[in-house]
Design a protein around this nucleic acid. Structure first.
Lengths: 232, 232
DNA sequence: AAATTAATTGTCAAAATGACATTTAATTAT
DNA sequence: ATAATTAAATGTCATTTTGACAATTAATTT
């Protein structure tokens, strides 16, 4: 008969893949690891699950501690539990991906941790199985973003259509037709056009939009067809 | 400074929500729990993650042990980690849902465990947070099945269109138009029509179909639009 | 031979999609 | 002042997909 007492116990951790968008490119936030082993190597933001918190609590705590941000969009991805994944001692890690507005982060930067944004394609090699986690997170981000409007979580309050399209293109590693993208995204009813223009990126300037938060909440679970089915 | 040695250690378990389909209704496979606490209450199939196995390994082992089946469709759902979810000792559980062909199971039934199929709507109350897990699994099953052809995993080698439609309707808790369903499912190219008919459920008889496994693999990741967008 | 039962199949109008290029609004250069 | 430049914004059309809708077929039972 199986009993609790005879069963092995393990460390349980969380690791967060933090995505951001600078208006042109998708970025990922990494930290220099503060403990042995692999101290001072680049790693995901992570920490152990404490005695009185759930893994979700732990992920939120870690994010708050390292970025200063609360209420961040956070989604549980999967558990990483290969017996040998941590060389010191068996540790299972719950992977999360987080989407944050890069500007909010800069405003609240916590300098106790050596954190740095990297272009997604130019990130350093990470410790343990963190590279696999990043690959999985990108896949899951792409999957989810093709059905639900989560990418707005990475945008500032005001954004332009070209920025939004850039974001979609970065996440999906593809190019889209401007006219079709504009039509589709407009037809969701999620956008409110503002009077002001962003003149920083062109002579003509691009109109700012903001998110209609009521419709965002209402339509979040409905499957939106945001990515075109490319032929060829 | 955080160190491994000072961190708490926990039990880690897996729990499997096993779905099946009897040709008319969606069912769930439950077992009578063999250990304290809550011994002899109905529960999900589960077990602790052993020292030399990953959670995925553990889930497969548990399923093999309790149903005799290998190679079952198994998908990691999420981790359940509220500090107090197990009253004896802190235990985190990785939830999986499994889709099995109910006929294969009956052929290999392992009678060492008191396992029983329940209609999804007539299942007994379960221990701990297992009712929540079932609710989450149903939601995830519905989500995934609306995009990918996973429901075929619950069907025998030969099945009829009316059976297939029943399955979709059960999972999505809805009714569909026969003509539109037939058109959509046929247009995926996943079905091969057989010559034989199933005469058990009607006078006319319904043609058997089988799954085109090559196309199933090839199209699995492509988003199929299998559930209609109901108006009203 | 008629009634019954469930399976199978077709049409049509509306909506969504994908492919495609020109015009517009502003600044910068001549 | 005018022309050149740059990126933003916008429209059309043919094709495909969708959703709503009911009659016919193949067999058994009465």
């Amino acid at each position: 008969m199986i009993e609790y007492s005879s069963q092995p116990h393990y460390l349980v951790a969380v690791d967060c893949i933090v995505f951001g968008f600078d208006g042109a490119h998708l970025k990922i936030l990494l930290v220099k690891r503060g403990i042995e082993p692999e101290i001072n190597k680049w790693s995901l933001m992570g920490g152990f699950v404490g005695a009185n918190e759930s893994p979700d609590d732990a992920a939120n705590r870690v994010l708050k501690k390292m970025t200063g941000l609360e209420g961040v969009y956070l989604e549980q991805m999967q558990i990483y539990g290969e017996p040998k994944r941590d060389p010191i001692e068996r540790t299972l890690s719950v992977g999360y991906f987080a989407l944050i507005d890069i500007h909010k982060y800069e405003a609240q930067l916590n300098t106790d941790y050596e954190a740095e944004w990297f272009l997604i394609g130019e990130r350093p090699k990470l410790i343990f199985d963190h590279d696999q986690m990043v690959a999985d997170a990108r896949k899951k981000l792409r999957y989810k973003a093709s059905l639900h409007p989560i990418l707005f979580e990475m945008l500032p309050k005001q954004f332009t259509l070209p920025q939004l399209q850039n974001l979609f293109e970065e996440v999906n590693d593809t190019k889209m037709d401007t006219r079709n993208f504009s039509r589709k995204i407009t037809s969701t009813g999620l956008l409110i056009k503002l009077e002001e223009k962003d003149r920083s990126s062109s002579k003509k300037g691009a109109y700012y939009f903001k998110l209609d938060k009521k419709k965002y909440k209402a339509k979040f679970q409905a499957f939106l067809n945001l990515i075109p089915n490319l032929k060829n």
